[in-house]
């Protein structure tokens, strides 16, 4: 069960709002500071680890850039939208971020409500109002990836990709 405070976003939230151009090639820790800087400046400083994002239709429209990775990196526990762009869903699976689709979710929650989400039966409950909805079930294979760090651990275990390269001594950004 995932329980967390809700942040509300509207319809058609695009990838470039999650990863603006000026950080497109920046390290992940720089990218996360720019999430929603154009449409909701300051949000990244307010969001807390374990919070939940709830949005309208067509969330994540746009490019292949890994907006889902940034949403994971800002500390969100998961997100639920009326509908997800297919490439955003793929990025969520690939980078280990739980993203669900649930009809009616955008009207069932107000900002600051507490959401309770079960990944066993995909119920979405508004603890503040008592309203309960049912999200579309995520195929087991995809849910497993969303919950376990995405595709890379799988590829690494099979010997298809190398482990993450360590930062060079004296170099890098840390």
């Amino acid at each position: 069960m995932i329980t967390g405070r809700v942040w509300k976003f509207g319809d058609n939230i695009n990838t470039d709002l999650m990863i603006p151009n000026h950080v497109l090639h920046a390290p992940e820790e720089e990218q996360l500071k720019a999430v929603f800087s154009a449409n909701r400046p300051g949000w990244v400083d307010e969001v807390q680890k374990g919070d939940i994002l709830i949005a309208g239709h067509n969330f994540g429209m746009g490019s292949a850039r890994a907006g889902a990775r940034s949403l994971r990196n800002v500390g969100l526990a998961c997100m639920v939208a009326e509908s997800l762009n297919g490439l955003h869903l793929r990025n969520s699976v690939n980078y280990g971020f739980v993203a669900l689709e649930c009809e009616g979710v955008s009207t069932a929650f107000s900002e600051g409500d507490i959401a309770e989400i079960s990944l066993e039966d995909f119920t979405i409950r508004n603890k503040t109002t008592g309203v309960t909805l049912k999200a579309s079930p995520v195929p087991e294979r995809l849910l497993t990836l969303m919950q376990n760090g995405g595709t890379f651990p799988l590829l690494e275990a099979e010997g298809y990709v190398s482990p993450v390269r360590p930062p060079k001594i004296g170099g890098g950004h840390k």
Binding site: S63, A64, A66, G86, L87, L89, R90, N91, V93, N94, Y95, P139, R141, L142, G150, T151, F152, L154, L155, E158, Y160, V161
Partner: peptide, 23 residues
Amino acid sequence: ARGVAGPDIMFALATGQTWFKVG
């Protein structure tokens, strides 16, 4: 044909396969 995530590309390179949800 469709756009996929970066790691999907590595998976497709390595295994020759990918997944799709049929809409």
